[in-house]
Amino acid sequence: MTLNMIRPGNKCKVTSVRGSGSTYQRLLEMGLIPDTELQVVRFAPLGDPMEIRLMGYHLSLRKKEAAMVEVAHG
């Protein structure tokens, strides 16, 4: 299951991040590393991007980027 499939309000835990390049690097640096817990807050009115909450802050990312993050229900 990837992060873009989680419904707003639900919590999950990162299991792995796939990919390469600057998006991959930035995702990890922003704290999306294995075992990080996060909550999906909402999707933008036009359906993309999405807002998540992790480590006490709010992050907006596009679904395409969220699809790189493998998660499990936590």
Partner: peptide
């Protein structure tokens, strides 16, 4: 040069 759109919502 296509950086991601990872934006903090402060």
């Amino acid at each position: 040069n296509l950086p991601p759109f990872l934006m903090e919502l402060p």
